[in-house]
Amino acid sequence: MAQVDESLPPTVVMARMLDGFLLSQALFVLAESGVATILEQEGPQTVAALAERSGSDADALARLIRTVTQHGVFRTEGDKVAVTPLGATLSEKHPQSMYGIAVGGMHLHYRAVAELGHTLRTGEPASLKYFGKPYFDHVAGNPELAALFGQAMAVFVKTLRAGMFDGYRLPEGETVADLGGGNGAVLADLLGQDGHGDRRGIVFDLPDVVEAAHATLSAAQLSDRVEVVGGSFFNEVPRADIYLLSWVLHDWNDEDAAKILKSVAAAAPAGARLLVLEEIVPGGDAPHHAKDMDLVMLSLLGGKERAEDEFRVLLDEAGFDLERVVPTPSPMVIIEAVKR
């Protein structure tokens, strides 16, 4: 979020902030309806043509377009509507598409966060009140939502994490275990840039999740070097020289995050390396993506984004020493720690 425009009266600035939900919903539905995809793929269209193609009411569509155009998402060209480079990212076909996050945000996040007041009063995740069950249980029990979640995570890997490993080299070690590795995309990216063709890997996640890694590893020609293992990192993890936790710890509160780290410590030999890929919450009042993401974690999972000192304490209590924090071109950092 941008800094407050102090040239405007506070009431005007606050009114715009309070109306922020209108913009996000407009972007969600314009993505899901296919309007952004049509414009990005086929060029400027009239509202009438867009309405017919997308199955939309023409008047409602025109008013949605008018709303987002003032934010630079679309632009008008005579009687036609064109998409801007910003709006093009809502297209399902764009190479840096945010479509998965937009549609996933509408169905996976937006409605549950409406119960944020419940979280404020009780400390419980808003999703627990809205869905009546833990967030991941709700998603796993609905195939359509599970597919949306996977799509949103794929967008994260392609966009928000893009360039993260540029110039980065893994520490010494023969085996890298990606815990909570999902479809294996992060480990495949890391090993693909590693330059050590004899290093081996393990993708570890829940049995019904990790099966998707086979296709990813096959496409990356890594099937002969990477083992796919099902299990829970709360119980036991494989032995390895290097462990990777990518966007995992922020899903959990401090108690559960400590359980995960202690499970890793129980399997890791002395001197094993741990790489934690997360955002770090900076001090002060400056805007940062992690501060917004922290509300998502609070509302949906009861997890949290953390400051560097908070990571240091968690790691220390589990038997790891935080050695350095490596900045990356993405919003995330690589926290390197070593098992005592």
Rank of each mutant, 00 (worst) to 15 (best):
A82G: 11
E52S: 10
R66A: 15
V35C: 14
T69D: 10
G78L: 07
L39F: 07
Y99H: 14
I101C: 14
A48R: 11
Q41M: 05
I38Q: 10
R63E: 14
D59N: 08
L116N: 09
L30P: 06
L120S: 01
H109D: 15
A62K: 08
R121T: 02
V47Q: 09
V68H: 09
E32F: 01
E52F: 03
L61N: 05
A49R: 15
L39K: 03
Q96G: 12
E52N: 05
D79G: 09
S24P: 02
L39G: 07
G123V: 00
E52H: 08
G78W: 00
S24C: 01
A62G: 14
I38F: 03
V68D: 13
V29N: 05
A51D: 04
A51F: 08
M98F: 11
L116T: 13
I65M: 13
H107G: 09
E77G: 04
G117M: 03
G117R: 08
E42T: 12
G72Y: 03
A112W: 00
S54F: 04
V47K: 06
L116M: 11
P44C: 04
T37G: 02
L64H: 08
T76F: 09
P85I: 00
A82C: 07
S97Q: 05
Q45G: 09
G72E: 07
H109N: 15
A49D: 15
L22V: 09
D57L: 10
R53T: 13
A51L: 06
R66M: 11
P85A: 00
T76M: 05
A88I: 06
T122N: 04
L61A: 02
G117A: 12
V29T: 13
V81E: 09
D79R: 12
S24I: 04
H94S: 04
L86M: 12
M98W: 11
G105W: 05
T67H: 14
S97M: 07
P95V: 03
H109E: 15
A36T: 05
L30M: 09
T76D: 06
R53Y: 06
E52I: 00
V47Y: 11
E52R: 08
